[in-house]
Nucleic acid binder design. Structure first.
Lengths: 219, 219
DNA sequence: GTGTATATCTCGGGG
DNA sequence: CCCCGAGGTATACAC
């Protein structure tokens, strides 16, 4: 990684055009060639950047980064205050826990928590407009489409509504009910779901994980 | 801005939990207090971060960043390779051109490109559930609601559908047709729009801008 | 503050 | 390769 602190101005032309007037900034060049321009504030997002793969041409006072998509980033250096380079080696990467995929997996394994007598038909049931998170049958054999979110908002209800509309055109499945499952459901999403006859279920990730973890089982 | 290069491990606990095994990384601390952990590759996004406002407690070999939302980032330093600090001063900020707002402005000025004989009623026509990008009348005086996107995806069709449902309750406007205008329309969005009787229009930003630019006019 | 819409969204997975 | 969905989305703006 190369870290240059310099008074510079920057122009980007690509998906949009953007310009940075002259000021002191950090220019970060990573081992994979990607370039990012950071100000000293304003959260983690750089002011301007160019992702790999790209080509970096370093001139006396102008750096030009271009990529195969035809985008370009031009950095004009007015005054270089610092310029250091370091070797990092490989990064083992980030380990995440608690995202939607885990929730979906746990609910697929334990879909009786969604309703008494529920049995799994399929996880990621494919349709023409995308995959239904979980398809179940209830205690009397009726089909239930389940949409799972970490945070239940309006978008999720819209998504489930589209699936239901499509699934209900299939005589083998009809009638299909909807169930919106999330760790937290926003009031507006709950209202919209109710308006469309979609049931809501708040699920507790930690509790589910505990049920799934053999070391925490009581029996 | 303080830039520390160190062999470190990191733990985040908040909206999810995440762990970074020991490796060499860049720790960036900006003037506003935000902290970001960068690997030497993998685009501009840091592996882990904590935005301002937060509280950074720096110990001998452990830094703990906490924020008012109850999230925490714990950095354990195993070996500090470099540690530099610089003053940047204020940044004038990024100037952008070519985002959705510009496309909307150009189409409002030239709404005949949306359809022969179209005339503008209002830009940003306010409704209870948000502003309709453009409201037009067609050649025979019927109302057309236009939703504009840079990239037309399913969300945009849903958005326009909600507006149409509301607008069509107004006897002064009824019947209102929908037009989904974007520089690029994804296949699924096109299918959903077709299914709902919403027309699609692909518009060329550069062409529109050229039409708008007096220096490029031929007449 | 909450809700809504945008983003050079980024990033990852599946066909 | 594109398409789609999730995101600790972040961010700006309106109500």
């Amino acid at each position: 990684m190369r870290l240059v602190i310099a008074r510079c101005s920057v122009d980007y032309a690509g998906r949009l055009t953007a310009h940075l007037p002259e000021a002191v900034r950090l220019i970060m060049v990573k081992a994979d060639g990607c370039v990012a321009i950071h100000a000293d504030g304003g959260a983690y997002k750089p002011l301007n950047w160019m992702n790999a793969p790209n080509i970096l041409v370093i001139g006396d006072d102008t750096w030009v980064v271009t990529n195969p998509k035809g985008e370009s980033l031009t950095i004009t250096l007015h005054d270089v205050l610092s310029d250091v380079q370091s070797e990092f080696g490989d990064d083992p990467g980030l380990q995440k826990d608690g995202v939607e995929a885990h929730l979906q997996q746990l609910l697929a394994e334990r879909c009786e928590v969604l309703g008494a007598g529920y049995t799994l038909v399929r996880r990621e049931y494919m349709t023409a407009i995308g995959p239904v998170d979980i398809l179940c049958r209830d205690a009397v054999g009726a089909t239930v489409a389940v949409e799972i979110k970490r945070r239940g908002e309006i978008d999720g209800v819209e998504q489930l509504t589209r699936y239901l509309e499509l699934l209900n055109r299939d005589p083998l499945l009809y009638p299909v009910r909807g169930l919106f499952a999330a760790q937290e459901i926003k009031p507006q999403a709950r209202v919209l779901a109710g308006d469309r006859g979609i049931a809501c279920a708040v699920v507790d990730y930690d509790l589910l994980r505990g049920m799934d973890d053999p070391s925490q089982r009581l029996f």
